[in-house]
Design a protein around this nucleic acid. Structure first.
Lengths: 187, 187
DNA sequence: CGTCAAAGACAGAACGTTCGTTCTCCCTTT
DNA sequence: AAAGGGAGAACGAACGTTCTGTCTTTGACG
């Protein structure tokens, strides 16, 4: 089962994810994207009508990847451990090498227009996450799943926004302790 | 005591704060800045050697404004109420008209280089906030002021990052409840 | 009190660069 | 024959920055 070599479209998406996340969206020109993806300009515009379409595709691909990561992290334990697994996943994310905040929050900073397709992709991702963690809290028997879900989103946003500017390990510890305190989990 | 009319430099700073915050930094060209500030290009470059210098000045001015806001909000009550005042201030910020997240977190998304002067200004602001809320927690008699301070920063970051993308009122309520739960304050 | 020089601001053109996008031409694969 | 990709030139627009020239304000000094 040898994997087929990545198509130009896949190379573009992978390069976009890497560069957009590491350097911001507006600061990465099309020239760098096609050069690093080893693709010609014509190929770029054959797959994406404009740069913004690649931005949306990048966010949707990231969304799909994160859904998978949450699924596998949660599936490892029993229902009561799902919430704790999300807290751990947040900590691992903020302390990973090359961490530079949340793909979606960062993108939102560069796309202020709430009706922009980029913002729609962001909203869809956030709605999924909100719903997922709320269901996790309900399944774990939390008395107020809606509140628990909003707490998890709040801690997630705070961790990813702050850890790139402060000490990531301190943020990880704070998230874990605060999450367990708020949601009645054992330390 | 009639106020003197704002100088070109002040007009530039006010315009920069308004436009950079509402639309992002890289998306606002110098042309829009000088037009809306009613200033010529020559005047712009007489006060700021480059656009990035205006960005730094904008962040430092915002930092000064926020220090004042926290001071007055805290000064209104006794020592034990300082932490609660910060929580209230966060809620008011996220629910204000035109709210679009945190000036500094948004700017960091557009300036990935940690050694950039913009990032230095961001780091200074965050260090001040971290230290201020930690001292507030200590003054209020919290048993673990360092943890309480990190919790306040975490809630602050999460609220400002999330409220622009979700329901601000829900975020406000969550921050208040979670903050009081975590820090042992009465509801 | 009057004067002159320096500084700051206005108006607008202009420069060089970079960006997103399009185009032409050729090659390979199916 | 058709479609997808490679190579690279080219275009028009937008951007940050500089320049030329004129006018007003200001303050030091005769």
């Amino acid at each position: 089962m040898s994997t087929t070599p990545p198509s130009p479209r896949e190379r573009l998406l992978e390069t976009a994810s890497r560069l957009f996340y590491a350097e911001g969206i507006h600061t990465v020109p099309v020239d760098r994207l096609v050069t690093q993806a080893d693709v010609t300009r014509a190929t770029f515009y054959r797959h994406f009508p404009a740069k913004e379409d690649l931005v949306v595709a990048y966010l949707r691909a990231t969304d799909a990847r994160l859904r998978g990561a949450v699924e596998t992290a949660v599936a490892r334990g029993a229902a009561e451990q799902g919430v704790s697994a999300v807290l751990d996943l947040i900590g691992e994310t903020t302390c990973a090498a090359g961490f530079r905040g949340c793909h979606f929050i960062n993108a939102a900073a560069e796309y202020p227009d709430a009706s922009d397709p980029v913002r729609e992709a962001i909203a869809e991702h956030r709605a999924w996450f909100q719903q997922t963690v709320t269901e996790l809290a309900a399944r774990a028997g939390h008395p107020d799943p809606a509140y628990a879900g909003r707490v998890l989103v709040l801690l997630h946003d705070g961790a990813l926004a702050g850890a790139q500017l402060d000490d990531p390990e301190a943020v990880r510890a704070t998230v874990r302790r605060a999450g367990h305190d708020l949601l009645g989990l054992p330390h």
